[in-house]
Amino acid sequence: MNGDQREPRAVRITLLLGGGEATRSALELLTQLAWKGSIEALGIFIEDSSLLRLAQMPFSRELCRVTHAEAPLEKADLERQLRIQARTAKLAFESAAAQAGINHAFLTRRGGLAALLQQAAQEMDLMILGPAHRLRQLSEPVSLTAIARHSRQPVVALYDGTESAERALLTAKQLAEAGDRQLTVLIAAEERDAAGVLQQRAIQTLAGSVARYRFAAATDIATLLETSRSEHAGTLVMGVSENLLKTRFLQELSRRLEFPALLVR
């Protein structure tokens, strides 16, 4: 065997797993990616150290989602709950990965969310962020995150012409075709003319696949999520450049996601 005939390197996918809906959505997306062939999936359950610190504050009290009762937030209780969530997430992840025939590993990391996200993003080809990540500030009731059946709703891809955006577009195309879902391409350009050029490139990249194209003048997170929501997005696929990773983009995105996102490097 010579060096030119080496098998292609496995695609590394990192899943950021939280509790409940976040884990389910992320795993659903992972199984949809199984068509891609050789995949190595790494499931990471993040125990946010800031939350644990918070539990030590004298004013810390928790309002229970189920009983609506208020009680002091104890660090020991919190750690126990996180362990349970991690265990549940691990079982679900391992089961889904095994069923899809994906090589997989699972780990729990404790630390600051921003640093952990950046670190995870450095190590992957694709990163899956589940919606309603437990650490995001509550922007709306959690129960609403389950309204949409993400895996059946359109795949929305953000395309700005970069290499990672090209890869993201191809990934979105495959995802849409595999799930028989509609593909919507958000063309990220400051002007209409540039957008037209990018759309032509996207059409070429998609090689005849049917897609709906939409112009997105601004790509800040709030606008991006609002536009995706208006397209009834089930999954957001976007490329992430090195520069983007250096910003607070991932942390912000993870806070606000209402549907799973697939980040492609």
């Binding site: 509790g19 800031s50 939350l51 610190r53 918070l54 539990a55 504050m57 004013f59 810390s60 009290r61 928790e62 309002l63 229970c64 989602r65 189920v66 937030l73 919190l78 709950q81 996180l82 349970i84 969530q85 437990r134 650490l135 995001r136 500030q137 509550l138 959690v142």
Partner: peptide
């Protein structure tokens, strides 16, 4: 800030200059 815990919600004071930093 309102922060979600595994089973509910809690609150944390923020510094004015930097959001979410306790």
């Amino acid at each position: 800030a309102i922060v979600e815990t595994p089973t509910g919600f809690t609150f944390t004071p923020l510094r004015k200059d930097e959001e979410e930093k306790e």
